[in-house]
């Protein structure tokens, strides 16, 4: 026997569809707030041999640990991180994965599949300002350079200062954290959709470019987990900075083994 029920609901989904956007909203908000204060702090970002990834490359004369010789002179007395924050920020803001994540969690366009958009009008990425998402590829090149610089930092993180003024090889928890961080960043950066396009996706005739096809296949495999690496690398950058900061403040002690020190 049928009974009629007039049902007018926002969505007919019964699963907990709101968990993912809510989680990402909290995670991204927490990261933005933390990185803002860490980035402008201008202190506690270097404990020999660990340099916070927020401050690398350190290029201003007032830097506690210069990556290269000072590119910005002594006139600059704010945090060195301000000079470089735009590069990773623009890369992540225009990243295809992050676009999905924040369109869902912040703009609710849509918050989840078959959950109605929060706004009545929608023009997507066809007009200003979102048409600027198309510059994503231009942000990828500096992001690659940053990966190599952070890899150098990670290598230096295994060389600890000695009492005689030199450096000795060792392994500390910070060295491992910085290594994991740069590996996650590399997996994220080289699994990027533009990277996949650049190294082979733009071709129609793979057989003419076998090396490009091999690269395309490798990047495609990496790209399957692009979202995972996007989140993991975000968390690892924040945690690495937090570790260096707590170490610098004397809140924690770095467990380490130094050979021949």
């Amino acid at each position: 026997m049928a009974t009629m029920t007039a049902l007018r609901q926002r969505t007919l989904r019964r699963d907990a569809w709101w968990i993912e956007p809510a989680f990402l909203f909290v995670l991204f908000s927490a990261f933005v707030v933390y990185s803002f204060f860490a980035g402008i702090a201008n202190a506690n970002y270097f404990v020999d041999p660990y340099l916070s990834p927020f401050y690398s490359p350190c290029i201003t004369a007032n830097c506690a640990h210069l990556t290269f010789g000072p590119i910005v002179g002594t006139w600059w007395n704010l945090a060195p991180a301000i000079w470089i924050v735009g590069f990773p920020l623009s890369f992540r803001l225009t990243c295809y994965y992050y676009r999905k994540a924040y369109y869902r969690s912040f703009f609710q366009a849509p918050a989840a599949c078959t959950v109605p958009d929060a706004r009545s009008k929608y023009g997507g990425e066809t007009a200003f300002p979102l048409v600027w998402q198309n510059i994503h590829r231009l942000t990828w090149y500096p992001a690659v350079i940053l990966v190599f610089i952070l890899a150098l930092d990670a290598v230096q993180a295994f060389w600890f200062p000695t009492a005689s003024g030199g450096h000795a090889f060792g392994i500390g928890l910070g060295s491992l954290l910085m290594t994991v961080n740069v590996v996650l960043l590399a997996l994220y950066t080289f699994g990027c959709h533009f990277c996949r396009y650049l190294f082979g996706g733009r071709l129609d005739r793979f057989h003419l470019r076998p090396i490009a096809f091999r690269l395309y296949s490798l990047i495609s495999a990496l790209n399957l987990s692009h979202g995972r690496y996007a989140i993991l690398s975000l968390v690892s950058v924040g945690l690495t900075d937090l570790y260096v900061r707590l170490l610098s403040l004397g809140v924690i002690v770095d467990p380490r083994i130094v050979f021949g020190g």
């Binding site: 999905k100 849509p110 997507g124």
Partner: peptide, 28 residues
């Protein structure tokens, strides 16, 4: 207009990676 929120990929019964393999490469 596509803002790559990937719902099309989520529902595809043939498991076609619509967003990653079709839409994003076209956008590029």
């Amino acid at each position: 207009y596509c803002n790559i929120t990937k719902c099309c990929t989520e529902v595809c019964p043939e498991d076609i990676h619509i967003t990653d393999n079709a839409i994003i490469p076209l956008k590029e």
